[in-house]
Each structure stands twice: as structure tokens, then as C-alpha cells.
Amino acid sequence: MYDFSYHKPGSVADAVKMLGADGEAKALAGGMTFIPVLKQRLNKPSAVVDLSAAGLSGIKLEGDKLIIGAMTTHATVASSPEVKKAIPALAHLANNIGDRQVRSRGTIGGSLANNDPSACYPSAVLALGATIHTNQRKVAADDYFQGMFATALEPGEIITAVEFPMAERAAYAKFPNPASRYAMVGVFVAKTAKGVRVAVTGAGQNGVFRHAAMEAALSTSFTPDAIKSVTTPADMMNADIHGSAAYRAHLVGVMAARAVAAA
């Protein structure tokens, strides 16, 4: 790891100032991705700005909105009575991210800022039509994810919270890579006031995506049978040592049916 200077600002405003003043400075959340990246010398920040004291963790229910602070850990989301009450599928998703120690430190904000193509949260955020709050604006999920590891965040912009609408029905089904637990394929299905949405992670060449054909079929009938004949084009799928494109395309259908059955 290259050395850097370490800062732990006490507010979002100070963190934004530090990141803005130095183009080579980077934010640190749970470090579950960032520290391994630093160890591999894939990134050489001049300064690391630890967000843990900036007041960004916490969960609250506000009317028909569930708001989760960016620094809230996966373990906290998994065990939160508010999340279990409002959107149990989200607590279930958080409880199956990585392993217990990853869940002790990894955060929802870090996961979304990173937008790993096999991460779990992006599928929930996209399927539920959540809104990402940053230090300067609010971004709809549809505008936020812009391909593998790419997001709408500007340099130095900090995610402060994620706002989820209530869901009538929702579930996440993941086929985990048995070693890392990241999604080989993960499908989040949701029925909210805005209709039915299906988001797929782990599988697509451009990261998380919405499955229009499944959304149409499930809008007519929200049953596993309704999507039995819906296919997923293999040429959009990722292929690697863990699975071919055709295998992943098939898994999308299997995981979607399981998610619908569980929702």
C-alpha cells in the first residue's frame, strides 16, 4: 500500500471540503473494497477521508419512506426493526452480503458508490426505485447506475443517505459465488405504488439492469408462472471463470422465479 494522509472529519461539510480541496483525496467508508484496492496498489490517494465520524449512520421511517444513512453497516440494516417492518427483503439482502465480518464494517453508501457489478444493494435500489441523497442533490436510481463501477456521482460528491419507498411485495434471490458470496446472479423483484420492477445484478455486462420483459409479464400476473417463458438474451450477460453467459442467462430466470415466489 502506498502511504497517504488520514483524516476523520466530524461533519459532511468538512469531508466535502477536504475531498474538494484535493483531487487525489478519496473517501473511506467500511473499507471492505477500498482497503483491498489500496493493498493492491490499484489506487494511490494522497489523502483518505474517513466518513465514520461525519454523522451519516442511522435508519429512520418517515411517513411512507425508509431512510438509511450512507454509513449504516450491512449488519445494522440486517437487524433493524424498522427495516424488517418496512421492507423485510432489504434486511434479508443485507444479512446475506459477504460474511459476518464484512457485514460488521461494509456500508450501504460504500456499496452504492462502488457499484460493483456483482454487488447486492444496487439491485434493491433499482427495483424499489429508491433515491440516492448526496451532499448536493437527490438522484433517482434510474439515473444513478451508469454501468460497471460507474455512477452519477461527481468527483468529491458524497452519498449521505438512501431513501426507499414502501413496497407492497419485494424479495431478493441470490445465487452466491460460493467463495466470495458476491452475486453470480441476484434478482430483486418489487411491487410498489409505481408498479412492478425487476432488477438483476451479477449477470449483466453493464452492471445492474432492469428486466423489461419480466416487468411486463409480472405486471399482468405476479406469479412465478408468469415469467416461465420469459427469456434473457445471453449476449447481454457477463462470462467469466465462474460461469458462461448462457449459464447466467438461465440463472436469471431461476432466481427471478424464486424471488417472485418469496415476495
Binding site: 488520514y6 473499507g31 483491498p36 459476518r100 460488521s104 464494517r105
Partner: peptide
Amino acid sequence: GKSVKSCTMLAVQ
């Protein structure tokens, strides 16, 4: 009070 991977945490944290 929480178990963590000490290879993935900075001493300063």
C-alpha cells in the same frame, strides 16, 4: 464488541 477482519482495517481507524 464486533468481530472484524484486522487485515482490512487501518490501525488509525
